[in-house]
Every structure is written in C-alpha cells, then in structure tokens.
Design a protein around this nucleic acid. Structure first.
Lengths: 299, 299
DNA sequence: CAGATGCCCAAAGCCGTGCTTATAGTCGCG
DNA sequence: CGCGACTATAAGCACGGCTTTGGGCATCTG
C-alpha cells in the first residue's frame, strides 16, 4: 500500500517538475527523493516519471497518481482539521444525562457558560434519574452522568467509573405557610416526627426513611410523587411537610410554602460520573470543569 | 501528518472493537497496535478510544476519524487499481507519431494487433515527417516517433533518445507501363541516368541526389511532391520515373505503373524512436513489441 | 570546443522508527 | 476466587529511510 509521504511526493514533483526542487520543497535531500520515487515505482509496478533531458516528465501513470493524490491529501488534511477542531474545543459534542433538578439548575448554567467560552461545542442533555443515567453512561450513550446520592447509598458509581463531587446539597424542610414552625430559622427532624409527609422520588423516600429511623421514628408518608413541583403543591395544600433539596428550591419554589433549614443539616451529594478516560477528551473535560465551576458558586 | 497505516488501524478498530482483534486482522501483534494508537492519539491531540470496561469504545474524535478514514482508504485503493490497470496493460495510452507511409502500413497493423491483445489501451496517432515527429517526442507530446532515415542522414535521432530499428525498406524503381525497362526483373540506377525524375519529400530528394551522385550523374528532377500518390500518378502520366519505398507501394500502387527492383538495392531504415525510460512503460513497451512483430512480417 | 553548472544516480553509513517478545496489571466471568 | 482475555509497559532488535560523498550526463556559456 502507498504511503502518504509518497503521495505528497508525486504531487510536489508534478508541480515542480524536478527531484531537486521537490526535495527543497519537502525538506529532504535530493537522494532521498530518488530513493522514495524508486520505492514508489516499485510499488506501483510501472514507471511514474521519465527523464526527458534535463527535465523530469511524469508518465501517464504518474499523472494519474498525482491527480488522485491531490484529492486524497486534501481529504487527509480535512480529517486533520476536524480532529484539530475537536482537540482545540472549536468543535465536539458532550452528551449529558442529569437528574431533573440538576438539569434545571446546574446544567443550564454550565451549558450557558460553556457555550459562551466554546461556541463550537454541541451539548446534548437527557434527563434521567441516577440509576438510568449510570446505565446510559455504561452503554456509551452519555459522556457525563450527573447524579446525586445520600449518605446511605452509593449512587450506583461502581467499578471503573470516576466520580467527581460537585456540591453538597442541603435538604430543607418545606412547610405550609400556616404551619406553626414556618417562622423558625431552623427546625429539627424530630420536630416533624408527628407530621404527615410528602415524599419525593424513590431514592429520596428511602433516604427519608433512613433519616427518620436515625431519630427513632417512622414518618407517616401521606403521598409520594417524583414530581418536585407536585411535592410543594401538596405541602402548600396543607397535606403534609417535606424534605426538599436546596437545588430543587432554587429552581422552583411554591410561594404557598416556607423552606426552613434543618438542624443538623441533612445533605445529598451531587456529583458527575464519567469513564476515567473521558476526562482527557477535550469537550468532556471542558464540561466537567464548567460544571465544577458552576457548582462552586451556588446559584 | 497521519499515516495510512493509522487510518487502516482506526477503521479496523472501529469494526472489531478491540485492539487484539485489530492486531489479528492486520497481521500485527497486540503491542504494536497499542503503540500505533498511542502515536496516533498523540498526533491527533485528543483521545480516540476510551476503555469502557472490557470493550474499547471510540470517542467522538475516533468516530470522526474512522468515518473519514474509510473514504480516504477507498480513494487510495482506487488509485492503486488504476495504476495496476496501467501496469497490467488493462488501461493506458500510447501516443504515436508516424510518417505518412508508416501510418498507412505498419501502424494500422500494429494498432489492430495491440487492440486485440489489450483492448483497454488507447492509441493516438499523429502523422508527421521525421523531423517534426522527433520534435513532438522531445516535447513530450508523443511517446513513440516512427521515423525513417537513409544511409546518409541520421534521421534526427540525437542524444538521449533510443532508436529501435524496425525494418529495412527497399526502394523500387517505378516506371510507366510503357517504359522500355518495365519488363525487366531488375534495373540498375545507371540505367535510369538519362530519365526525367519525379522526386518525393525533401529528405527523399536528398537521398536521390546522393544516390545518383554515387553513380556519377545528377538526376534531372522534373517534378517534386510530398504526396506519394501524386508521385505515382506523375509517373503513370509518362512524366518521369521515381524511386519509391516498398512500404509506400504496399499501401498504394498506381496500376498505370510498374515497380521494378533495383540492383544493387537501395534501402531506407524505418525505426521507432523513444525516450529510453519509456521502454519500461507498459503500454509503450507493448506497442514497441507489436511494431517490431508487425515489421518482421512484411505485409 | 572546453569549462561550468544543475540535475540525477549510486554506494555507504548511520540513526531512528516500529516491530516482536516477555511480563505485569486489570476486568469480567464461571 | 481463580481463570481467561484483554491491554499497558519495557527491553531488544532489525529494518527502513535519510544523509553524506562521489560520479555521470545534459545543457548553457565564454
């Protein structure tokens, strides 16, 4: 099989019409050109140039090869340009999978910042709860999975994956406006032991149960819904109280409710999970950096 | 700049999804693949694959490169096919420049034979007297010049060019039917010393003068014309006698004339002239061989 | 016509590249 | 939990390809 070096050579010779000139143009010495051409002709199985007195003239085969070589070389150059664009953050793509409240807060801010810094990078966003996000990551359908985990669970970040902590998201107690404790600057979980509870998603509900068990009671869960807006609406309607992550509240807060800090503050960890190798992929690295930066400055 | 080896590699990996499989497919050992890929990624400036557990997955950059590589490799393969066609006489072109009586005799036979043996080869034919044919050859406008020369001149085959003798063409005396010598089996030049002469082309006329001078007389040239048909017509009209090459007579013979062998037989040499390098160009070599073969069997 | 000038070819030597072999580390599976 | 398959790393070696040097040939010039 030909070598690109040979194709460049035949093009250069076609233009300059001389081995010496081609050598100067390509940064070789003249004998190197002679040797390369001999190798190329051996490969081609037919002469590509003929000596016509002082000048070298391309044969029909040489002309044909030079013609094709020009196209091939420009294709190669185009491929190099494309890769250089990806390496230089002028192009590329990051596929993000984030849980709902993440995709409503951290992610939009990160995307906006990244789009400003590197307009050529395309970002795609899929919304998924952490378990599905991890599956997408494992299946190669996503580059970054934005997940959260409570102290008691591992978020599914198992072998081979790298987890980058982004922020510690404090849980707030959400009470109806009219609730007796709504004026407090902080509440204890025990204070709410007798309340009816509105629970969130499945893993949030698990965390709630563990948390309350730690304080010696089992919460009376009146309703459970994945929808964080619905949770607050149910609270506003006076049907119970809830523990809601600060991130959720920063994205949407029902005005009929009050969010009160909890003491001691329960937290959930929000982190990005990637394949370790991905951290060296320019667009992924840029997005991770941006997410970290955005997370460091709470909205 | 990339190497074709790298492009083949990324394609193979894209298909097989494994370094080891790619190594088997390409005939390398596995470490060779690892090293090539590392070199390629260094060149590209960005990772091209990520380890996803057991499987290797291409990154966006890797996919992009693999996509382009496939096209590039097929272009290279097409170029190789084209050259292989030229080398294998399934394609190619020969540009022939021949003097008139050659292009009417030897050349048609050679072209027919070559077309039969190698239908893919295109032959182009230009008619030119030897001096112009040599110029075309020097200027690269022809691959083979078919020329003739008399003993006294060199046919213009000067330095750097190779001359391949094809045949010795005997000159015949052409006499009107009614001429007193028209019944003889041979004539001597001296027998025609007192005749009026019809001369051919410029170089033929020069040869006639030298020939007669050798026999101690100067011919009385009544008419001179480049057109070999006209020469014979003038003879047929009783306006003189002529010396005409056998090759000319085999292509056209005026029935009102008689061609008589001359003793001793004057001759002109017919030969093909090429650049020495051309003899290794497949299509040119094939045409030279064919011309030689055709010349060996006088039509 | 001889010298000068480019240009290409040939031979020899050397350096670097890239392959193989051997070995260790890692992941997934039975 | 050990086995099999895969990849990474290191060391060693061979080949390829480049440079240097010297020579032949064609063209141009005084």
């Amino acid at each position: 099989m030909f070598e690109l070096r040979h194709l460049r050579l035949i093009c250069e010779i076609a233009q300059s019409g001389s081995y010496s000139a081609a050598a100067r143009g390509l940064g070789y010495t003249q004998p190197a050109i002679s040797q390369q051409m001999r190798a190329l002709e051996r490969e081609a199985g037919t002469p590509l140039v003929t000596r016509a007195g002082r000048r070298m003239r391309l044969t029909e085969a040489g002309e044909a090869l030079a013609r094709r070589a020009a196209g091939i070389l420009s294709s190669v150059a185009a491929a190099e340009d494309e890769l250089a664009g990806i390496a230089g953050l002028r192009a590329g793509r990051v596929r993000l999978t984030a849980f709902p409240s993440g995709s409503a807060t951290l992610v939009p801010a990160a995307i906006a910042r990244l789009a400003h810094a590197h307009p050529g990078i395309r970002v795609s966003l899929t919304e998924a709860e952490p378990p599905e996000a991890m599956r997408a990551l494992r299946d190669g359908e996503a580059d970054i999975a934005l997940t959260f985990s409570y102290g008691g669970d591992d978020g599914g970040a198992s072998a081979g994956l790298a987890e980058i902590p982004l922020l510690d998201d404090p849980l707030m107690a959400v009470l109806p406006d009219a609730h007796p404790l709504s004026g407090r600057t902080s509440v204890k979980v025990c204070d709410l032991a007798g309340e009816a509870w509105i629970a969130g998603c499945e893993r949030c509900r698990g965390n709630l149960l563990r948390l309350c068990a730690g304080f010696g009671f089992e919460p009376d869960i009146a309703f459970a819904t994945d929808d964080s807006v619905a949770v607050q609406s149910l609270v506003a309607a006076g049907l119970g109280v809830a523990l809601v992550p600060g991130l959720v509240l920063s994205a949407s807060h029902n005005p009929g409710t009050v969010a009160v800090p909890v003491d001691p503050e329960p937290r959930r960890g929000v982190s990005a999970v990637v394949w370790p190798d991905s951290r060296t992929v320019p667009a992924v690295a840029a997005m991770l950096d941006t997410l970290t930066a955005v997370a460091a400055v709470p909205a």
